[in-house]
Design a protein around this nucleic acid. Structure first.
Lengths: 191, 191
DNA sequence: CCGAAAATAGCACGATCGTTCGTTTTATCC
DNA sequence: GGATAAAACGAACGATCGTGCTATTTTCGG
């Protein structure tokens, strides 16, 4: 069948479901019991794949980051005009927030705020992924506006994504996407 | 002593400590046991003040919003130049995020992302407070830029605050404040 | 197809969760 | 100051948490 060993396939299945659950309830509310039940596994059988809950949380975050790369980052590389990559990236990011296939919001953004004051490996993983994301934005910003304030641009861009997430999911503003894209346009125009 | 009844004083003490805990671990991780222990109360004695955990969470969020009004919103009213109120508001907001007296981040922003997909009274309260905040920003934006895209400005402003929170608390960027204020300046200049 | 190794299940543990109830202490008012 | 009401406590509940152990099933290389 698949060229992966059975254990690895189950491992991946668990992480996919964990990502789904974490997107809805947050990474902190991710618990082993309900996760195992959803997959038709026993608690201990699932637990054996990770050796602690924290490891499960970290791997779940890593899995989200991998999906984010596939859905957002990777397509940007096909854009030949480097000055346009920031715009393409942002467009993909908003698309990811709106229709990534997850039932809930982006677990990386959620974990970034949820664990910002909770020391431990989960916080470290969140900082690692968000930091990487931030540096990526700075690079795109530098390519788009070589003489602009790239740090300020990057701050605005990541902020717009978070704002979009909340206006979309919490406030339920159906116009959120249009507003977000207009704000991004104004940001680029003013830089 | 105080003109409040004993029960009301304790009620307020509980909420203040709950706000502190929620700012660190998030509203979802707010639990009654540790909260009671920190206050020198019994679990059941504390619980009697609220009749469910959800009520405690909602009241905690309300308490944060009240503090936010005192620290951020109210001082803005003293600014006579209405076109400058958006800038004053934002300055106060960032100051609130940096030194509100809380050990952790702003529980309203955290709850907005944490509960955006978890139906219930806590989500409703988060949406109520964040929605009110958002409409306030729109009003300030309209006063500052009557012919501008006030929705887009408001989206950028709230986004910048969230981005600041994460860059400050998660990434630990000590330059975060300067970058945030520069980004805000560029936002106003371009609008 | 068989035996080793990996994967999963079953069960139990101590801890903690939110919540209820009856009692006891403490505040409030005439 | 003593009656009355409010507030806080202590103990217990069923449930669920993360995490060990051991046994059983399943996979896979020779």
């Amino acid at each position: 069948m698949t060229d992966l060993a059975k254990g690895d396939r189950t491992h991946a299945r668990i992480l996919d479901e964990a990502v789904e659950l974490a997107s809805i309830n947050g990474l902190g509310a991710l618990t082993i019991g309900p996760l195992a039940e959803r997959l038709g596994l026993s608690k201990s059988g699932l637990f054996a794949h990770f050796r602690s809950k924290e490891a499960l949380q970290v791997e779940t975050l890593d899995r989200v980051a991998a999906r984010f790369r596939d859905f957002v980052t990777e397509p940007v590389r096909t854009e030949p005009d480097k000055t346009r990559r920031l715009a393409v990236f942002f467009e993909r990011w908003i698309a990811w927030l709106d229709r990534s296939g997850l039932s809930g919001g982006c677990p990386i953004l959620a974990a970034a705020i949820e664990f910002d004051d909770v020391p431990g490996p989960v916080r470290d993983a969140a900082a690692r992924h968000f930091g990487e994301l931030h540096r990526l934005i700075v690079r795109f910003a530098r390519a788009a506006r070589p003489h602009g304030d790239v740090d300020a641009i990057a701050a605005s861009v990541s902020g717009l994504a978070m704002s979009h997430l909340v206006r979309m999911r919490l406030l339920g503003e159906h116009r959120a996407r249009a507003v977000t894209m207009r704000a991004f346009g104004a940001l680029l125009a003013g830089a």
